[in-house]
Structures are given as C-alpha cells and as structure tokens.
Design a protein around this nucleic acid. Sequence first.
DNA 1: ACACTGGGCCAC
DNA 2: AAACGTGGCCCAGTGT
Length: 971
Amino acid sequence: MITFLKRLTNKNTQINKPVFRFCTANPSNNDVLGDYVIKSKMSGHSSENLYEKYKNFYNVQIEKINIPGTTIVKNRDQAHKVVKILKSLPNREHAWDTETVDVDAKLESPIGKGKIICASAFCGIDVDFGNGPRLFIDNFAQNTDLILIFKEYLEDSRYKKIWHNYGFDRHIFYNHGINVQGFGGDTMHLARLADPSRGPKEYSLANVTKHYEEEIKYLKRSLIDDLRKSIQVNTQELQTVLTALQKGADLPHEIIQKFQLHRFNSRDEQIHFINDQMQKWLIKKQPAYLYEKYYLNTNLKTNMKQLFGKKKYLKDGKEGKTIEFPNTIRMHTDPELIEKWVHYSCLDAEITFFVFQVLKDELKSLSTNFEDMRNMLDLYNKYWKPFGEILTDLERRGFELNLEHLDKIRVQAENDMIKLEKQFLDWVCSTQQGVEQFNYSSAQQLQQLFFAPFKRKKRVTKDKIDANLDEKEKKDLEGIKNFEENSAIDDEDDNFRQESFNEQNEDYDEDDDEESPQKKKRLFKKAKPQEDDDDGYLSDGRKKSVRKEEDDIPQTKAFKVLNIKGIIPEGKKKPPKQLDMNITGLGLDVINLTDSGMPAADLPVLKILAGNPKKGNYGAIGEYYKQKGDEEMGKKASQAIESLIQLKQVETLLTTFIIPLRELADKDGRIHCSLNMNTETGRISARKPNLMNQPSHDKDVYKIRSAFQAGKGKKLIVADYGQLELRILAHMTNCKAMIDAFKMGGDFHSRTAMGMYPKLKEEIEKGELLLEWDKSQGEPPAPLLKDKYSSERKKAKMMNFSIAYGKSAHGFSKDWNCSMKEAQEALDAWFADRKEVKEWQDNTKKIALEHGYTQTMMGRYRNLERLTHSKSARHLVQHGLRASINTPIQGGAADLVIAAMVKVSKDPKLNELGYELLLQIHDELILEGPEEHAQEALARVIEIMENPLDTPLLLKMEVDAKVGNNWYECK
DNA sequence: ACACTGGGCCAC
DNA sequence: AAACGTGGCCCAGTGT
C-alpha cells in the first residue's frame, strides 16, 4: 500500500504553468504594462475563475488596436452592426472559432468549464464588417459577455456555421448560455472522411491547412480573380470617381467595388495616378481589396508555436528544448502580443472557411454508389454531418454516475489491495534481503525478480536510426527495390505483387474514366513525405522504436526507492531522498518476450508461473523450487503470484476506472467524455475518460458498470447488435453459407462448427446431435453440439471473431499451442463452405496492393499506400493487407451504427417518449428516458436499429436490447 | 518538474 | 521483423 499511496501523490501533471501579466485595471490610467503581476498556475483544475475575476477590469489594448482589414468588435454598438451584416448572409457558410480561458482542453471537458475570451468569424473575402472581412469579437474584461449579442444569430439554424472541432466550441458557447444551432460542418471530420490515414496528429487545423496549402492558395487567388472579372470599368466612371474623390464625397458601394478590383494595366499615366489615389482612399472601405492587400499572401499555417512559442532558458543561460507559451489572457492584453493574437485568432476562422471549400471539392471527387449517394460529400451530408452534431449532444448530456457506489467500491478495492500486496510482498521478502519496497506495478522489477539474469535486445528510437543512415543508404531505400527480393512470403501475396507490378506499368496515364481504379488511386493527395518503410508512429501517436543491438542484464540490479525510513548512509549527514534497492533475479526460464526483446511479465506469463494453487498445480514457479528441493517454497510462491495477479487486476480497475470516473464527474455527478471521429476505420473513440473500455460483465468484480445509472424517474435502454461484424462480412461477401446460417437463427458459432467438421454435420443429419434446443420444451432428445463438442464450438467461435481481423495460421497455432499444420487445417475447414469470403478477401487484398486503398460498405476510403506501397517493408505490407480486409468490415459496421444513431436521434416517436442517446460503444447504443415509456421506447429502438439503412442488407440485423436502472443490469 | 518511452491492459 | 484489427490510458523509468 505504501508504494500505491506514493504513486497517487506523484502523478504526472502535464500542465503548462506560465506566469502571466495583465495590463492596467483602470481605464483612466495609462496603459502601463505589468502593474499587476499575477502568478497563476492556469491549471485545468485550478479553482480560479479568471474570466469572472477580470470582468471589472479594462483592457486598454483592445481599445487601442486597429488593424487594416480586420473588424474588431469592441463594444455593443459595433456588435449589433456586425450581427446585422451576418444576418444578411444566409446563403453561405460562416466559419467560426473561439479562444478560451479557464479550461485546459488537454485535461478536462469544456462542458461546464471554460469561457470565451474572444471569437472570430469569416464569411468570405467580399464581406465587409466595417473594417474588412476579418471579424474579431472581444469578450473579455470590459467586454465580458459581449458575445451574448450574437446569441440569437448563433441559435438561428438558418445561418450555417462551420468549425474545426465543433464540439469544443459548441460546449464553450453553451457555457455562456448560447446553444449554437445551424451546424454547417466540421473541417476535422471532412478531412477524416477525405483520408483517415494520415496519422494521429495530422488533423489539427494547422496540419490540414498545410496538407491543402496549394489548393487553398489557388482558391484564394481565383476568388479574387472572379470578382475582378465580373467588374468592367469605363473611362466615364473613372472620371466620376476622380471628381468625387477630389470633393471628398462618399461613393456608391457598387462603383467603389468596381474600381478597387480593377487593374489599370497600361492605359495612361493619369489613370494610374487616379487609381493609386483611389486605392489609398478606398483602403478602409473595401473588404476584398483589403483582403488582397493584407492577407492574400499571408502564411497559411495557423501554428501557435511559430507565433508565440519561445524556448525556455535553462539556468546556465542556454536555450532549452521545451517551448513555452504565454497564456491567452496575456496574449489578449499585452501590447507586444495583441496584434499577433488577433491575427492568429482571425486566421483560424478564415482558414477554416477556405479549408472547408477545398475539402468539399475533395470529397466530391471520391465516389460511392451506396444508397442514393454519389460521393463522399453526399455521405458527409447524409450521415457524418448529423452524426457529428449528435456526438456533441452526447458529450453535453453525459452519463449519470452513482458516486456513493464509486466511493464504496474504491474503499473495497483499496482494502483488497492492502491484503493482496501483503501476501505477495511477504513472499518476495522471503526470497532475499532488502526488498520491502518492491513495486509490483513495475514491469521492470517483476522482470528482474523472475527472469534475471538474461540477455535483452536493446531498442533504439527510429529517429536515431534515421540519423545514422548515411546518404547512400537513404538513396538506396528510396530507389525502386527489386520486386522478387522484396516480395512477401506467402505465395498468394507473391501473386498480388506480381500483378500489381504489371498493371502499374501499363497504360497508367491514359485512363480518364471516372470510375476506373487508376483514377481513384490518384485521388489521394500524397500525405507526408514518404518514409522508407514505416510511418514511425504507434497507435497512440507516439514515436515507434526499432530493435537493435544486444545487451546483458545482470542477476542483481538496483532500483531507486524513496527513503521512507530516513536512513542515513555511512559518511553522510543528511538522509538522501532516494536509496538503491537491489533485486536479485531467480533466473526462471523466459516464457514470452516483449516487443523489445525483454522477458514479458504480463498476465499470461504470470498465470503460467503461478499455475493453479487452489487445485494443487503450482505452476512453473512450483517446478522451479521443486527442483531446488524446496516444495514448500514453491507452493508459497505460487500462491503469492496468484495474489499478484489479482493485485494487478484490482489496481487496474481502481486506477483506470474507479478513481478517474469519480474525479472527472461534474458537479451533478454526470460524466462527460469527449467523443472523437479519429479512427482509420470510421469508428469513434472516447477520451477523458474513455467510457468505451469500461470493464465488461465478467471482469467487473466491483460492478463498476452499475455506477452508470439512469437519472431519477428514468430508465436506461442498452441495445446491441448480435454479431454485427460477421453479418456485415456475410453481406459484403454475399456468402451463402453465412447468410443461411444467420437466417436459420440460433447459435451461430455452433453452426460454424457444424460447417467446419463433417463428422458433426453427419451426426446432426442423423439426428444424433442437436444444434440448439429450446429448454422450455423439456429435455433435449439428443445431446447438444455446444455440450458434446464444446472445444470444437470454442474453436469455431474464436475463428469467427479473429478471421475478420486477418488472423493467420501462425497466430492460431500460437494461441492454441498446436502445430502450424493443425491450425491451417482448422482455417481451411472454416473457409470450406465460405468460399465467397476467401474470394472477397483475396480480391480486396489485390485492390489494396494495386491501388493502395480499401473501401467500407458505404464506400468510405481508407488510404493504405503507406503500408502496401511497394517500397514498404514486408511486415508493413502484411499489416496493410490485414487492414485492407478488416476495414471494410469494421468500418462498415461503424457506418451502419452511425446510420442507426442518426435515425434514432431524429425519430419523432423516441423524441416524444423522451428517450435520448447517451453513448455508443461500437455495436451498442445506450439511451436514457422516462421510466413509464421504457417498453415502448425499447420496441422502437430495436425497430430502428434493425433497419438503419434506406436499402436493406442481404440479411437481418439482430438487436438485443434491455431496460434497466444501470448499465450492469442491462447485460 | 516535465516530456518521452516501454510495458501492460481495458473495450469492441 | 512480424504473425489479430481499431482505440485510450496508467505506471515506471529515464533523459533533459
């Protein structure tokens, strides 16, 4: 428990903690900077409410600032004028963005926390808000809540607002009492739809902009040119303008517009002169002119780092690596920063506007013929756009938690840990001296204890390897590799590669047919500069490592531990904070290796070590001590490891589920996660906290799921699809055997087993074996398949689940501890009556290899070029091939559930009954609504989920749904 | 004190 | 080199 408590107080904070200054608080004073130096942690969990705190201050900088082409709303009058202009533009998209205070987006939800410090909007280069097309709205200090003047407009669905990461801004607006309506699109989602495979960090506004830089530049230029072309200027008008100018009169808008866009090429000196004069005069009048003059060629990237980042200085005066940012209040009030700040803020909205237009074109070029859709833009409008808004609804709604229950199980779990830790540590201490502070949470210490001494393979980061490659090597890697040499191991893969090689060299540039695969291939803009073999990223966005040289680990190794007893070593006066703890390894046979070549000490390994002490099986550790002639110690060790296994499980439940749930719940006890469309297959993911990986029924020993409850007087409906992905597979492959099996109903896995083993089929045909039996009809007249051949059924079930993931004979042989031949036979048996699946898989892989993409059921594309490109390393190609057959299934299921959610959320009957969606977990929907309408709503939910699409699939979608008071009950 | 990496584990 | 796909997150250890 000591180590556990120590860890709780030693959490990584990940918070930037800048010191900031605020300008004068008194409008009558001079704008002296630094009158107030406020030290603030700006932590997300800070109780300080800076927005409220400064509402009586006066930000002189906002009053002073004046930027050509940028309309800065500094007071109520200007706000009303701008609203009027916004409302005069109902037929175009309005791009919006906000900057915020009092919320740390990395750590916490913007729901109920965080305020707008300023907002910006952009509706096109031809819109003049008073001082140009860029719009910046102050909402801080003297202008606190100025944004409320825009409330009516923002809540009016006639005006379509577009965003980059809508959810965040929508929640922040809601914190001001503004419920934004008229969702016009989210460029983050558009970019994902266009190409979901660019890497986890490539969908920030800055990176999306960079990706489409050329297109955006072209678009901006052509917008200006179009305006110019539409305007003809004659000499008479020119004279009128000149005269008017000399008199200093205001000219009609139309006339001004003509002149500000016209280029007086080489008419004569006078015209040039007039034009110059006029431009000087017009500079404050014309949005597009201003836009062209000041912003057309500005840097497109909206990178915070470039604008505001400063390298932190170390104590010795050298530049450090970490980059610091001033906080938003500082940037909003500092005379040296505010211009850049306004520019940055406006650029976000502006670039969102342009990126949106470019992405619309991009999506139009990606075709599909699913349902009535023609391309990805249709798909976006029909499904992804409404779904994007639904996700923000779910985030806002949250899920009610039973906090008392969480507190109760937290105490239970902590007490269990104390007991289990003692049981384990007692044994560890009996193996050697001085290991009282052994940390069971440390994989390294466990490795050391059980397996040292051993040889490990040292990992080196990819960066370092790249740096070590000399130029020649790099060139070699970039060059075209020999096909034979680089081809895959499997014969089938060899065939694919050979074919793709041939086709790529034939007629590549000829085909202009829209539907031709060659055309499609070119639809993906090349992502990052192609690396030689790897994208270099882990699934969570972190840099990958690569194996390299070997390295020995000694039998005894030191680990640092806290000096809790305050021991003073010889020759020292003060107790050091840390001491060395030596762990001497037992030298057990290594059971499994980690990715980096270290001996693994994970659950399967520990289970092998422990055996099953309750049944008298003392596992590998028992065997180890037996050979040393100490059977008693073997028993103790086995029991200790058994405790360790439980201990680790309890620890996981406590630290990843119970404690974070409690801490992230809002003041009303509801938990709001963030739901993201950020996967390569089109599934969603959840964060802060991840509500999609809560322990399932059998692992949920503390009943964590029962803490997710319906509100007072309400019920939950939990509805999930049965074998959704297998049904999608059956549909997409048009596999007769699978479709029939699903049509017959009953236990699908038993049916699979029957198809795999002729012997079982025979018995069933003879009536000696039953596929299933309704127990209410009494005892079955013959044995059931799932009882008599449970191991066959188990195998069939495992294969059903893993084959869609692309699992190979090698994987099965490892899992089942059997020979490759046996595993291959099982695989062949599975495919025996499912030839269509095999054909489809082969064909899909072929397309992936040839053209570098795969498509989901709805026609969504996943770009696999990085993996299947001929330059890619073999293991990456194989990964790409598995992904190519998995994505249509997983992504197709995601498509279908999205369709179901869109239907559910706008269903008039469910709305009337008061039932609302709370959460989606891939194939499961959770709704909440009034108790009295539960059954009616249940039936309706099932009805919708079974028929989510306009055109039905080849087989029925089966839905299992339950009503209950909490998530645990609804199993 | 913070950022990053490796190991491990939860879900579908 | 890897052998089952898609995610998020917690902890320890180490480098800066």
